[in-house]
Design a protein around this nucleic acid. Structure first.
Lengths: 191, 191
DNA sequence: CTCAGAACTGTCCGATCGGTCAGATCCTGA
DNA sequence: TCAGGATCTGACCGATCGGACAGTTCTGAG
């Protein structure tokens, strides 16, 4: 009551809108993907008009650009740092640096993968999520330990990526390399 | 020349159209994502009208559903098989089975990740691709061996996935677990 | 030769997309 | 007090989206 006049935030001319837009966009991009999120969706989440978004940003792409800019810059810093190291040092620094990078910019990474959870929710792929959960369980040896789950999740997410781009290996070789790498990551005795 | 009459394929009433649609859709979904691909795009790739697509399929979702159905079925078979095994056997079978599954259905997996290459092509993320290539190089210890590249790619793709969903671990623990798992996968001496 | 059905086309539809624009509202400093 | 810039709104735009529909062409069985 004392400060009713001051507290009452006018609906217009708020200074924090720009950051609110970025936060809302990050949430929506992560949930439904960049293409699956309209300016109207973001405006609704923020509580402003679509035109207000375009006052603060040059367009939908500009929102994405500003959202990921810090992560891209940090990635570039890592890239530059690795360039100055020899093989052995770079290898270790790459692992540590990439883990740090991804953990620090979880939100931005989630945006990058944003379309997948939306796809997985469609009827055609609805069962995949539960099956993936059970597969993760099997990969841990049915252990509930978070550390085991983390390792299994890395394997579960890493294997598909390998198959995305053509490796210079035949299928049989690639198969055995993948299985052995995964087994090492999971601390499994080599088959 | 002998069979000119038989060979001349009439533009209408071809029997293979349904499969052609699925192939074209798979290519386009993989390149520009499901949401980023319009029915018009698919029709153009096939060389038929948009209405022809909707004659063969109940809608865009139905095309996706039929495209991924074999992969989902194979995943379900793996899921059922793992359910009947004890921890140790299931763990090994899960690794082998998942690698086999992903390799056999590369195309379908690519569709699932289809939106990412398109996002990466935008100006805001254009540099990420080159930096990722160099990071992959560093992770292999600057080795050009395909086997080393495959392991590094698994790590590179797996680490972000772990950060997507909240693990039951604090940041410091998660960090060290990830680094150690990755190091094992890469055959690095533990730091 | 006929004709039923499969395969396909051109056209149209309502909804929604990203984006523009003229003006209303608000805050600030002179 | 008042001018002016920053902030924001409602209305509107052309393009494109997924999809519906009536009609046309082709094929193969009788």
């Amino acid at each position: 009551m004392l400060e009713g006049e001051v507290v009452s935030v006018s609906r217009n001319a708020r200074p924090g809108t720009r950051q609110e837009i970025l936060d809302a966009a990050a949430r929506l991009f992560a949930a439904t993907g960049f293409k699956g999120t309209s300016l109207q969706d973001i405006a609704g989440e923020v509580g402003c008009s679509k035109a207000a978004l375009l006052y603060h940003f040059d367009g939908k792409d500009a929102i994405l650009a500003e959202l990921v800019a810090p992560a891209v810059a940090a990635f570039a810093a890592l890239d530059a740092r690795l360039a100055g190291l020899d093989e052995g040092a770079a290898q270790l620094a790459a692992v540590e640096g990439f883990v740090d990078l991804v953990m620090r910019f979880r939100r931005e990474v989630t945006v990058l993968y944003g379309d997948i959870p939306d796809l997985l929710q469609r009827p055609a792929l609805a069962t995949v999520q539960e099956m993936t959960d059970r597969l993760l369980d099997a990969l841990t040896g049915r252990s509930p330990e978070p550390a085991a789950r983390a390792s299994a999740l890395m394997v579960l997410g890493g294997i598909p990526v390998v198959c995305l781009e053509p490796a210079g290996l035949g299928d049989d070789e690639l198969r055995s390399v993948l299985i052995r790498s995964a087994a090492r990551a999971l601390n499994l005795p080599v088959a």
